[in-house]
Computed example of a mutant assay.
Amino acid sequence: MHGHLSQDTPVDATAAVVWDVYGGLQLGRLVNKLLPDVLGTVEVIEGDGEVGTVVKLTYPPGSPGIGYMIERFTKVDDENRVKETEVIEGGYKALGFDLFRVRLEIIEKESESSIIRSSIEYEVDDKLAEVASHVSIKPLEIMAETVRKHLIEKKTTH
């Protein structure tokens, strides 16, 4: 069984500014600073934000499931502003998913605005269809909305 979810979040900032947050490790630092009670904490296990970087997301206390997820950056395309990660341990992998990929794409709209396109792609055995029905784009939507607000605040304070 294959699945795909996607969410677009408009941002009043240039694609280059948004990519500065999403392209490397700054996104994890922002999650730690602004969303630890909602999404959890991000720790870099190895790497510098390029392909091959491994990060561990520890969910907030009280979250259902295994409590953490380890992701590897499989694509970081600065030119097209696309980043992909795959869960390699914990999280959806522990629930039996064969593939759980997150794709974050920053799309230039106009000179001062862009879109954060957050997508999830997964593969799981048909027997786990009930588990697959719980896959949600909501955490990525919350993250994108938080980045949007952060960039607005940053813009107004400078």
Rank of each mutant, 00 (worst) to 15 (best):
E145I: 14
K127N: 15
E108V: 01
A15W: 03
S63K: 11
H2A: 12
V51R: 06
I45L: 15
K33D: 15
T156P: 02
D12K: 10
E110R: 11
E130W: 04
G3I: 02
Y59W: 00
T53W: 03
P60K: 10
I142M: 15
G40H: 02
K154A: 13
Y122V: 00
L128A: 07
H134D: 05
T156C: 08
T146P: 04
S119R: 03
M143W: 02
H134L: 10
P36Q: 06
S133L: 11
G67E: 09
L151H: 05
G40E: 02
L35Q: 06
G23K: 02
K83F: 05
P60H: 03
G96Y: 10
E108N: 10
E112H: 10
E130V: 11
L99G: 00
T14P: 02
T157N: 12
V44H: 05
Y92F: 12
I116L: 14
E71M: 10
T41M: 13
H158G: 15
H4V: 09
K138T: 15
N32E: 13
V54P: 05
T157A: 11
V38F: 12
F100E: 02
V21F: 09
V124C: 02
A129H: 02
V87P: 06
L25T: 09
H134N: 09
G28D: 08
V31R: 07
D8N: 14
I88Q: 03
K127E: 14
I88R: 03
V76Y: 00
S63T: 15
R101V: 14
R148V: 08
D20M: 10
M1H: 04
L140I: 00
D20P: 07
M69H: 11
V76K: 01
K149F: 04
G23C: 07
L57N: 02
V76F: 01
V135H: 00
L5H: 12
T14C: 02
A144Q: 10
V147A: 03
N32T: 05
H4A: 06
A15T: 11
